[in-house]
Structures are given as structure tokens and as C-alpha cells.
Amino acid sequence: MGFFPFVFPFAELEVGQHLYWQLGNLRIHGQVFMTSWIVIGALLALVVIGTKKMERDPRGVQNLLEFLWDYIRDLARTQIGEKVYRDWMPFIGTLFLFIFVSNWGGALVPWRLIHLPSGELGAPTADINTTVALALLVSLSYFYAGLSNKGLRYFEYYVHPTPIMLPFKIVEDFTKPLSLSFRLFGNILADELVVAVLVFLVPLVLPVPVMFLGLFTSAIQALIFATLAAYYIGEAVEEHH
């Protein structure tokens, strides 16, 4: 109430409320899983339809899938390098596609129309749990990439130009997932909030340009997350001379 000293009888803005599901003694955010399943379902449906009958002369959805594949390959190849990008392409691609479809789903689908007992449906990436999960997966993968490619020599990276870098590089291991997760979370949540607040203040016309901006931000954030993940992995497998 502190943010909005007015009373709007026709709209409601809910932030930080969740639909809790109880799994044994674990509590999870139901609304995040519901939308993430829809996102995953949409992705899998697209992929299954597009790869059902693949030909040398692509037709229909196969074109889209090949475009995406090519885009992800270029992204992975430029950031990770020719040698190992193949191993990491599925991970980078999954991150990109999952975040992109989540963000756009959150921006395009009118989730608000579905009423939940508590909380509301929205992009899975607008929940800090999702973004931190993704960011920690990125951290694990770059460690794994470095260690599996170079063994213990991976730790040379920490003292690479000079040993003075050691503390900074150690701090980086913490700031990388932090910045990854908060950047994505903050952008998507902020976009949803701005749109919600605008809809709720001026329900006509005015939110539309902001929604377009939101679509743009969503796409950019997916690209940034995937690119940075690839860059971190590339940095870990890079050979210093």
C-alpha cells in the first residue's frame, strides 16, 4: 500500500505472492511450475512437429527449427570456440529457448485471466528461484567444462595474467551467477510490473508501447543469458599460452 496511496477497486496487483504446493516437506511455487510446464510443452510440441518429417529441402516448421539451430550454433561457436562448442550447444540452446519462450509467454499470454487461489501466473523467469537455478547450472557447467577439458590446469585460469588476479577471479565465481540471475529476474519482473502498473493506472493504449518494449527486453535478456553462459564456458575451456 505504501507505493500506491490510491484505492483502485477494479484491478489488483499481486507481487511476491505464490501458490504453494506441498511435496512431502518441500514447498514449491506452483504457478512457476505450471507456466514452466506450458513453456516446456510448447517447446517440445514445436520440436516434435518440426522434426517429424525432415527433408533435405526444408519445409514448414523445419525451416524455423533449422534457423534456430543455426542461430544457436553461431552463438555457441563464437563464444565457446570451434573445439568444444558441440558439447555445449544443447545446453546453451536449451537455456536460450527456455528463457526466450518463458519471457515471451509471460509477455504475450494473458495469464491474468486465469484466476489462482493465491499468486498469479506469469513468466517462470520472473521468479527468482528459476533464474538462480539457471545461473547455478551455468556455474556448474563452466566448472565442469574447465575441469573436464583441462583437468586441474583449469585453476591456472585463476592466476592467469598474474597471481594478483586470484581474489578477483574467486569473487567472479560468485558474481557471475548473481549477476546472471538478478539481471534476468529483475528485467522480466520489472517488465511485468511496469505493464501491470500501467494497465492498472491507464487501462487503454498507453501500456501497448511498453508491452512492445517488454517483448524486446524479453528477447534481449534470453540472448544475453545464453551468450554470457556460452562466454563463461568458453572462458573456462580457453587455452592460455
Binding site: G16, I28, V32, F33, S36, I128, N129, A133, L136
Partner: peptide, 12 residues
């Protein structure tokens, strides 16, 4: 907003 729980590992 910063309510961490089992959503995180399950999402991972």
C-alpha cells in the same frame, strides 16, 4: 519476491 524454496532445485 526473494522466497527461495524447493522450486530452485526442482527447476534446475
Amino acid at each position: 519476491l526473494f522466497d527461495f524454496d524447493a522450486t530452485l532445485p526442482l527447476m534446475a
